[in-house]
């Protein structure tokens, strides 16, 4: 009977392998002493405090300098965070692991396998975040739309970003969305972002007069960036005429105030000129949507 013999060899082989792994792990880990543990705790605390402090300092300073520098300073925040975090990890690894070439090779496969299964999404987000630092599909201060969420990027973390929506909600989105979702960025690091304001009027409204009014509305708004072009797009619909006023605010942050200002003043002028709005029934609306 050959079975027991084979079983014996297999058992011996598994035993050897386990012993080998244990020895490798022993080689990999350095001696853990109380001082090292205290040092590690100090490193973690200092790194955490430093990240928070630098974050606060850079945000504080970015709100006090000229606006043209605001976004540049804020965009620097993720790099500073990454630098502090990397330094802390290197210091920690150096204290607890013998990072020789052999050891690094030995643990790479194991760690990769473990992470691949247990923290797949987390690691995917971190890698996307790192790539995002250089590819920059969005940066702090940009106004972006990912999926259904639109707002200003308030922070760029290791795993994800935080968006402030027009309703003042904070939405956390993992960076790995950049693999699968389309990201619409309105300003790509610049202060201005185009704002489109729609106006709906009856077919009878004099389109040329309306267009001139809309130009003037944009030219006289305190928020308008006059270095950039203003455009009015007119579209005929079944229910009336749609006018789209496209202009840039001086600071993209004022997007919603700007839209309100344009709407208020345009409607006031329309009232003075006697323009009327389309009068739609629910059925008309359904037909228009269809």
């Amino acid at each position: 009977m050959g079975f027991p013999k084979v079983s014996f060899y297999l058992a011996q082989s598994v035993g050897d392998s386990a012993q080998e792994t244990a020895e490798q792990a022993k080689d990999l880990l350095t001696e853990i002493t109380l001082i090292k543990v205290v040092e590690a705790i100090v490193i973690v605390i200092v790194a955490f405090a430093l990240t928070k402090l630098l974050d606060r300092f850079l945000f504080w300073i970015s709100e006090r300098i000229a606006k043209e520098w605001r976004l540049r300073v804020k965009q620097f925040v993720p790099f500073v965070r990454m630098l502090v975090l990397t330094s802390a990890i290197v210091l920690l690894l150096n204290r607890f692991l013998n990072l020789s070439q052999q050891n690094v090779l030995a643990i790479t496969g194991t760690v990769a396998l473990a992470l691949g299964f247990a923290f797949k999404d987390y690691v995917s987000s971190i890698i996307a975040g790192l790539l995002g630092l250089f590819e920059a599909p969005y940066q702090i201060g940009d106004r972006i739309k990912i999926g259904e969420d639109y707002g200003e990027v308030m922070s760029y973390g290791l795993r994800g970003l935080r968006l402030r929506t027009p309703n003042d909600d904070i939405v956390s989105i993992p960076h790995n969305k950049i693999w699968t979702e389309a990201i619409s960025n309105a300003n790509m690091g610049s202060l201005e972002a185009q704002v489109t304001t729609s106006f709906y009027l009856e077919h009878y409204a004099d389109s040329e007069q309306v267009r001139n009014i809309l130009y003037r509305v944009a030219q006289t708004s305190r928020y308008t960036q006059l270095k950039l072009p203003i455009a009015v797009v007119i579209e005929e619909k079944i229910w009336g005429t749609l006018f789209k006023l496209k202009a840039y605010p001086i600071d993209a942050r004022n997007e919603f105030d700007y839209k309100t200002d344009l709407t208020l003043r345009a409607k006031k002028k329309f009232r003075e000129c006697g323009f009327s709005y389309p009068n739609l029934t629910a059925m008309d609306l359904e037909n228009a949507d269809g």
């Binding site: 606006k67 043209e68 960036q225 270095k227």
Partner: peptide
């Protein structure tokens, strides 16, 4: 100088 830095024309 402030207005220039704040992106005003």
């Amino acid at each position: 100088s402030r207005l220039d830095g704040d992106n005003f024309l």
